[in-house]
Design a protein around this nucleic acid. Structure first.
Lengths: 330, 330
DNA sequence: AAATAAATCTACAACGTTTGCGGTGAGAAA
DNA sequence: TTTCTCACCGCAAACGTTGTAGATTTATTT
């Protein structure tokens, strides 16, 4: 089975290759008559432009890159799913890579993206990232980068992120509302701005609106670590009366700890989390959480990318509002 | 910023393009002397072969396609993560698409894969798929297809799947071991061979080894559906004494039902599931499950793909063994 | 009828690679 | 000297597409 090419079509119809090419693109130079003839034959022979030839010629790949720490993660998953959906609708394909939170892998992946001449890139920076040069290199090649979720702290980039400050503030308000006085809070890696922002916001809100509330924060990654830290915290006196989790992994660890110590939620201990929304519903009672939808973020990021690709909009930050979803854990 | 090209290198060194090309590939025709000179300049100028030109010329894309029902799914996630990892190690990139369990989307995605001339394709068929023609078309273009997890029932394809029969048998044996007598079992869409096989195996094993055990099976998809069906089953008399879940989504629904009816696991009711291993650990006690690792499946599938790409091995089926992981739910 | 304008179409050169084949020297064998 | 064998290298033709510039036909004007 052979691919149909412009050449083949042109030979069958006895016209030149360029005419065929233009006819398929509705170029005004071509008469309606030949246009229809060409198009008919094209569908009959299942002509498909050869992507690689097109890309070689036009230097336009129509592939969008996505770089996330890991694919097997609820949040990035739904983000990817959303982008993939919209991308296909707009005639783009998607190329996904994972940095596994290693700066070195991140760099080599960025390299691959460049090599494959992606049209644009969505990226969540890894934990280790502190040098933005590899990203900068992409921009030298006129490849727009839209940072998502974990965005660099410095100015001058397109950023689409969750309203991190809002989310933590909303959680803090819920905590205050329920008159909790001793908060044990788990945050992600201290290197990430997302951790810092959420921490600062939670702290500030509590301090301002409920100065008597005590806040005890830890910065760590992973389920096991969260469990360990929570158990320790829960054994201290006086025991915290509410556990705040910055992400799903923290929540899972926290819930393990709670179960291990045979505490009842919310009678013995309250729990609140920031989450995509899936994990909190697995527990009984469902965990109250501040929603941060990866799916919605994906939609938003794609829109931002489109405007980047069309006109060079100035670097700007877009944030996705979040809302409290009540479970029964607070 | 301009790309370095062979031409540029050749101009700097004053030698021909072909010599540069060959030197970079260690062609025996080229002297060691010029080879080193070329290579040095290449690294200095950060030469990177233009993928699209290479692909146009060689008709080899070095991109592997992955087609799964959905990306945001624990099992396929870890599968993808595994394949991506190995692929990168072998110089391949990965292109991921989701069928969303729609035959029509599946077909159009297959089309895209063909258009992008993927080197090979991993595919889990959608629920709706009954016509294998679109897949066949890929093979006409000499694109090997390795089916994974949800494989077609007919012969003549490369299949890498879980030991579905084994998994259900192991679960059945565990159930018998614990002397459970009334099994309520939830399976996926009846159209999928994976559901049929697991059901048949569970049924047969129970019938053969413990004829007195009663089995009540339902075939459905989704958390809410599972919950509804389970609640209904749990309200019937006599109540089942063990719940078998074919997948994570069933398990989640089942656990919702169990919580809603305020039943204690395993005292009031036992639970066993087939799973990737993540969800079962979220519950307390952890749910006993038969492990089916998407990650391992990915590794296995990639190996199979490699052998497909090298020598045309005959179409064969590879299965991944599974094992019981004890939680406290049985 | 000739000149001009408009409508269609074609030729050709890229894009960056790979590759078959032919060409150049230098030294060895005749 | 001539011929042959090498080791090394360059030419040029692809791959399938697009865009520029020019060629042809047809319609319109003078």
């Amino acid at each position: 089975m052979q691919q149909s090419t412009l050449k083949k079509l042109s030979e069958v119809l006895g016209i030149s290759i360029s005419t065929v090419s233009r006819a398929l693109k509705d170029h005004p130079d071509i008469s309606e008559n030949t246009k229809t003839k060409v198009k008919e034959l094209a569908t009959a022979l299942e002509y498909e432009p050869n992507n690689y030839a097109v890309q070689l010629r036009t230097r336009q790949s129509n592939v969008l890159g996505i770089l996330v720490p890991s694919i097997d993660n609820f949040f990035y998953d739904s983000f990817i799913a959303a982008v993939e959906e919209d991308a296909r609708l707009h005639g783009y394909s998607v190329m996904i890579m994972q940095s596994r939170d290693k700066a070195q892998l991140e760099t080599s992946n960025l390299h691959l993206f460049r090599k494959n001449m992606v049209t644009g890139l969505f990226a969540a920076v890894s934990i280790e990232t502190d040098d933005m040069a590899p990203f900068h290199k992409l921009e030298e090649f006129k490849i727009p980068v839209v940072f998502i979720d974990r965005v660099p702290e410095v100015e001058g980039y397109h950023k689409v992120c969750l309203a991190d400050e809002d989310a933590a503030r909303i959680a803090a308000e819920a905590i205050i509302e329920k008159k909790k006085k001793r908060v044990f809070a788990l945050f992600g890696h201290p290197h990430l701005s997302i951790s810092k922002i959420r921490h600062a916001s939670l702290k500030d809100t509590l301090e301002k609106r409920s100065p008597k509330t005590k806040l005890d924060s830890v910065f760590l990654e992973g389920i096991a670590e969260s469990e360990r830290a929570t158990i320790e915290a829960l054994r201290s006196k006086p025991r915290p009366d509410v556990l705040f989790c910055m992400g799903d992994m923290h929540l899972i660890g926290v819930m393990h700890a709670v179960h291990k110590l045979k505490l009842r939620v919310p009678d013995d201990i309250s729990v609140i989390s920031i989450s995509n929304g899936f994990i909190p519903t697995l527990y009984n009672p469902r965990v109250t959480y501040v929603e941060t939808s990866g799916f919605k973020l994906g939609k938003l990021a794609f829109a931002q990318m489109l405007s980047c690709l069309r006109n060079d909009t100035t670097a700007e930050q877009v944030t996705l509002a979040s809302m409290l979803v009540e479970g029964g854990s607070l």
